[in-house]
Nucleic acid binder design. Structure first.
Lengths: 228, 228
DNA sequence: CACAAACGAGAGCACCGCTCTTGCTCCGAC
DNA sequence: GTCGGAGCAAGAGCGGTGCTCTCGTTTGTG
């Protein structure tokens, strides 16, 4: 169904990919703000209006790039994780975090696109959700594995937070204690806080040996969700 | 020296402030991407070229807004903190964090400007540094107070991180143990990770009761730096 | 084979940041 | 007190942007 779909459909897919590639090139080179449909078209030898056959608007193109970026990051993390699926959860956790950081450092503008500020009138399209979850799912899986054996839970929960914590656990990982699930979500956000601060220059003149600092910080994060 | 500086200088200051106000209005309404010099000028009844007497470029205007935003956030946090300067460090810590979150929720676009992705060809101007440090200084002060009495330190430091940790401590707070100073820097980044995730929609369909979740998470952050 | 859908090209609209030139106005030094 | 220079607003204009509309052409299908 997907292969012999006629030359037209195939051409369309190919052109779409070419446009995204060139757009990604410009994104990496200059950042999202300077990504210009006209420049993409120019570089591809088309006229700008022709691009609108493939993407309804500049924001649409950007959205496509966002999804690709989430997927690229997710794939990178999954790949790193797969290489040591048998290791201790703590090692796997640190590895996934380091893969995310490595990807972010290698693709700063794409990282900014997905974890930086929402650009236009925002409201992230629903279509991005699955791609966006991949790193999170990895962390959930690792934590779940770690909790298979001993039953140590996270820090005590205030009464007022308990309903929410139970809801989070039920949604994310029903087999995890609410304390752990909550700590996990927090760790997830905090991980990207660390990466963002490094990437966006907030650590300038503060943290020098960022690699080691990061490793230490995410290790602590892991301890917070019960790994060791 | 600042009052009777001649009508010309005074007018210049006033016009500059008016421009920033209108720019801030547009920033709050539409986001940084749609902040247009021409629109600001139009709204002010000037012609666009006249604005260039006051700001050398759009990026210059944005930089001025960034500094103001840092100051606004810092002032908001300092104000909240001052109200309970006598309380226990933990309470003060949580209060400062909540003030930062509150400010961010109230000024999402300004928050995105300072803690989101760097917009233009980036490289945050050096002039932003003092304003940007205010929340961090608050957290350092609280932690320092907490460590005045008992001598409990943070989590053990791997040997490989020790030199960096000692450097961080020496730079930031020489009277704090390196373990604590390192944890503090991490907590600082993680705090804004939490705020950013909530603000930029990453918590949609994940965390519902964000207020309580946040309070819990920053309490844990505080524990990580030795408060209780 | 014919017809409709998909497509590329081009012109054009409204907007953008920024520059340059032109006069006016006000301030301060003489 | 005057007069020149600095500061200022205005306008026109340049090259760029996203996006729309129209117009032939290609192309796959009923």
């Amino acid at each position: 169904m997907s292969t012999a779909q006629g030359a037209r459909a195939r051409a369309r897919i190919e052109v779409t990919a070419t446009i995204k590639d060139e757009a990604r090139r410009q994104l990496a080179a200059e950042g999202a703000a300077k990504l210009s449909l006209r420049a993409v078209a120019r570089e591809l030898g088309m006229v700008s209006s022709a691009l609108y056959r493939y993407f309804a608007s500049r924001d649409d193109l950007l959205t496509a790039l966002i999804i690709d970026a989430y997927d690229s990051l997710g794939e990178s993390a999954e790949h790193a994780h797969a290489a040591l699926a048998q290791a201790r959860p703590m090692e796997r956790w640190v590895t996934v975090c380091e893969a995310a950081r490595g990807w972010a450092l290698a693709h700063p503008h794409e990282y900014a696109l997905i974890y930086g500020s929402p650009i236009p009138g925002y409201t992230a399209p629903q279509a991005t959700v699955p791609a966006a979850s991949r790193v999170g799912l990895l962390l959930i899986g690792i934590t779940r594995d770690a909790h298979r054996g001993p039953g140590l839970t996270g820090p005590a929960l205030a009464d007022e937070l308990r309903p929410e914590a139970e809801r989070i656990a039920a949604d994310l990982a029903p087999d995890l204690p609410p304390e752990t699930a909550t700590a996990l979500v927090a760790a997830w956000a905090q991980l990207f806080g660390l990466i963002g601060f490094e990437l966006f220059g907030q650590f300038n003149r503060v943290v020098e040996d960022r690699e080691r600092f990061f490793r230490h910080a995410v290790t602590q994060l892991a301890r917070g969700v019960g790994l060791d």
